[in-house]
Every structure is written in C-alpha cells, then in structure tokens.
C-alpha cells in the first residue's frame, strides 16, 4: 500500500480502530489501577490514579484469597492435560494419516465430526460419567475431560500437518529395517515441532481458561483452578467485598496470559486462521 496522506477517510478509519482499542484497554487498565487501591479510594474515585499504593493487595490476594493455591492447581491440571492431550493427538493423527485402512479412516472421520458436538447437551452426562468413575472433585477428572475435549481438534490439526510431510522418511527408514515405533520416535517426532506448537498453544489456553466443566466437576476449594476460584471468591464475598485484593487477583490471573500471548501471538493468529477457514 503506498504511503497515504491524512484524508477525512483515513482519519475516520483510524478513529474507529482507536475507539475499539480503548474499549479493549480501558477495562483492563481500570482493573490494574484498582489493584493498588483500598476500598475508600475505589468508592470515592473509581477512575483516579491511586493516591497511595497498596501493594499488600497482591500478597493478600495470593495467600488470604488463596489465589496462590488456585494457581498451583491450574498449573498441575494444565500441565497434565496438555502433555497427555498433545501426545495422544499427535500419535493418533500420525496413525490416521499414514495407515490406509477403512477403520482407521473411520476413526479420523469420527474425530473430525465430533469437533462440532453440542456442548450444553454433554454437561449432565459428563458429570454422571465422572461421578460413576469416582473422579468427582478431583483434578484427575478435570484432566480426563480436558484431554478428551482437546483430542478431536488436535488430531484434525496434526493430521493436516502429517499430510504435508513426505512419506520418504518412513520409506528409507523401512529399508534400513526400522519398525514403526523406532521410525515414529526417532525420525517423525523431531519433525513435528511446528504442528505441535500450534496444538500445544490451543490446549494450553483451553485448559488454563476452562471454567464450564470445572464448575460442575470440582467442589472443594482446595482443588479449584483459577477461573473457578475467582468466580467462587466473588460469590462468597458478594456483600462485604474487599475490592483491592480481588482486583489484584485479577491482575495476577491476567499477567501470565498476557505474557503467554506476547510469546505465542504469531503462531496463535496463524493457527487460528488456518484452522478456521478449513472448517
């Protein structure tokens, strides 16, 4: 695009973008500012910069409001779900892409079709399945549900990745006498980094942010993940709320996502548009 002068149209276009940019940023900035205030400052001047900084809000959010505990739970649940989910997706995607048998192709079709399943309809049954397996109120139950939910998209994405990977790698390994296990681990796995990065990002965001299933599957505060813990915290404190630490808690929750976003933004945007346009 050639360099443009400022015209009425270009100013209008920029103003629209700036306006929406502010609509996105202002709520986040407001929470950040609020995280340094105490109740008096928040009630008297919701928008003003803090007149005195209450850094202890962060410490109180971390320990008293137990956000530290929720953080650890989120890390554990996410680490397990992402590791297992990515591993199973990559393996299954490799099988469905490489082995030309009818039952294998059917499995791929089933994975793909199940990406569009109606979530609301599955909530009660999932609760019953997890309950009957004796996994209610456990981090393990959450991990299983998250992995199961992530597999279809993971297989779908990785399958298209393997489709672009020439079979000559396996053919030469086969001639050297290597079996599928050796070939997969030694030759294929090291080549999957680009695809694995994309599904790892998605599965990370999916597990880290998940609230919907956690809400029905976990009931004791000791096992709350961050989203669930934050919502319950607000419910409990509804009438005698100490806002400062809650705002600080929100900041603690948003910062890792912001850092993660900054690091992965390029791949995230690429992965989203590639997957979305196919579907």
């Amino acid at each position: 695009m050639p360099k443009q002068k400022y015209t009425f149209a270009s100013i209008l276009r920029d103003s629209i973008l700036i306006l929406w940019g502010l609509i996105i940023l202002l709520p986040l900035c407001w929470v950040l500012i609020g995280s340094f205030k105490n109740n008096v400052q928040l009630y008297e001047n919701p928008w003003g910069l803090p007149t005195e900084y209450h850094f202890e809000n962060f410490a109180r959010a971390w320990s008293e409001a137990q956000i530290g505990l929720f953080f650890v739970n989120s890390i554990v649940v996410t680490a397990f779900s992402v590791t297992i989910g990515v591993f199973l997706s990559v393996l299954a995607a490799y099988v469905v892409n490489r082995f030309p048998y009818r039952i294998v192709k059917f499995a791929f079709w089933a994975f793909t079709a199940s990406m569009m399943l109606p979530l609301v309809l599955t909530l009660v049954p999932k609760f019953l399945i997890i309950r009957d397996a004796g996994l209610l109120d456990s981090r393990m139950g959450l991990v299983l549900v998250y992995v199961a939910g992530a597999i279809p998209f993971g297989v779908f994405t990785m399958e298209s990745f393997f489709a672009s990977l020439p079979k000559s790698f396996e053919e030469s390994a086969f001639i050297d006498g290597a079996g599928p296990f050796t070939t997969f681990l030694r030759i294929i796995t090291p080549l999957t980094a680009p695809g694995v990065t994309v599904i790892t990002i998605f599965q990370f965001l999916g597990s880290w942010n998940e609230f919907y299933h956690a809400m029905v599957l976990v009931s004791s505060p000791a096992k709350f993940t961050i989203p669930l813990g934050m919502v319950r915290l607000i419910e409990v404190q509804q009438y005698s709320i100490e806002w400062g630490p809650i705002f600080a808690g929100m900041v603690i929750v948003i910062i890792p996502i912001l850092a993660f976003f900054a690091l992965t933004q390029k791949r995230l945007v690429g992965g989203l548009t590639a997957g979305g346009l196919k579907g």
């Binding site: 469905v96 599955t122 049954p125």
Partner: peptide
C-alpha cells in the same frame, strides 16, 4: 504396524469416545 496402529489410535479414540462423543448420545 498392526500393534502400532492399535497402540496409537486406541487411547485417543477411547478417551474421546468416553468423555466427548458418548455424552451426546447419553444426553
């Protein structure tokens, strides 16, 4: 290869079936 297909596909398919596909029909 047969063993690889089974070991590679069954865990993912079983888990997705158990906690992702089956619940729709149960619902």
């Amino acid at each position: 290869n047969l063993l690889f297909i089974i070991l590679g596909l069954v865990p993912a398919a079983a888990l997705a079936f158990w906690l992702h596909i089956l619940p729709v029909f149960q619902g």
